[in-house]
């Protein structure tokens, strides 16, 4: 793992060299700003973050794929992946560094939204800062899980657009659609031993965001999101290695 800092630095800074990243960040801030404004007006609640978190989780299903699509697909397309994997660095280092680089950029992209809390205080509201922090911890955990999924999908194709669309579909499903399926999976096999609706609800990302939005940090939610990160990174490493047996 000695190369990890160098690789991560490269992945992180690469975002700042690309005009695309700023277009994404600007679009993201416009969308989240609008959500914040509408929510604040609508709920008249200084604890806007609790409701905003759900919105941001959804907005991230659109913007995280744009951040992760280039990670490996672009390198595969331009051939720099060949340079990367023939250098004396391990596939694990490559996957982890790309994950960390994208996470770093996304966290930076989210950071300006912290000012929403400041805006609330400017107009006389008294937000609960504990709730704000808990929400952001949740948002970062959720985003990390998103990124690991996006990273894996980016590693399976050389086409960034396909990677982005596929990632969006997967994220939209696990964040949003699964909520509708929970009731309709009673008929699956082994229904006597496995409580399928509970399993689907558990896998459903939204259900792990709820506590954070209330101001609660729960190890169960963190463990779940970290598990998704672990799985995503594992699959990415195997996908990088797959050149060996394909």
């Amino acid at each position: 793992m000695t190369n990890l800092p160098a690789l991560t630095k490269r992945e992180f800074t690469a975002y700042f060299y690309s005009p695309m990243a700023y277009v994404i960040a600007t679009g993201y801030l416009i969308f989240s700003g609008l959500s914040f404004y509408i929510l604040l007006k609508d709920t008249r609640d200084a604890n806007a973050m609790r409701n905003l978190l759900t919105f941001l989780g959804f907005i991230h299903t659109i913007f995280v794929p744009m951040v992760t699509m280039r990670l490996i697909a672009e390198e595969r397309k331009t051939g720099t992946l060949e340079m990367l994997v023939t250098a004396p660095v391990s596939d694990v280092e490559i996957a982890v560094s790309k994950f960390l680089g994208a996470l770093g950029f996304t966290v930076l992209m989210i950071a300006p939204t912290l000012l929403y809390t400041w805006i609330i205080t400017r107009v006389g509201g008294r937000p609960d800062y504990g709730l704000v922090w808990a929400s952001y911890i949740g948002l970062v955990c959720l985003t990390a899980a998103y990124i690991s999924i996006g990273l894996f999908i980016s590693s399976t194709t050389a086409n960034q657009i396909i990677a982005a669309i596929l990632t969006f579909v997967v994220l939209f499903t696990v964040y949003f659609l699964l909520g509708f399926f929970a009731g309709s999976v009673r008929g699956l096999p082994w229904k006597d031993t496995i409580n399928w609706p509970e399993v689907v609800t558990y896998v459903h990302f939204s259900s792990h965001l709820e506590s954070f939005g209330k101001g609660l940090v729960d190890t169960r939610d963190i463990v779940y999101f970290l598990s998704v990160v672990g799985l995503g990174l594992f699959l990415t490493v195997k996908s990088l290695e797959s050149r060996r047996w394909r």
Binding site: W133, V217, T219, S227
Partner: peptide, 20 residues
């Protein structure tokens, strides 16, 4: 891991009034 974590876990209430 998730099975264990759903049974043994910690939960921190960060709200100002420890509402939960």
């Amino acid at each position: 891991l998730n099975w264990i974590s759903s049974r043994r876990y910690a939960r921190w209430d960060l709200t100002a009034q420890a509402e939960y």
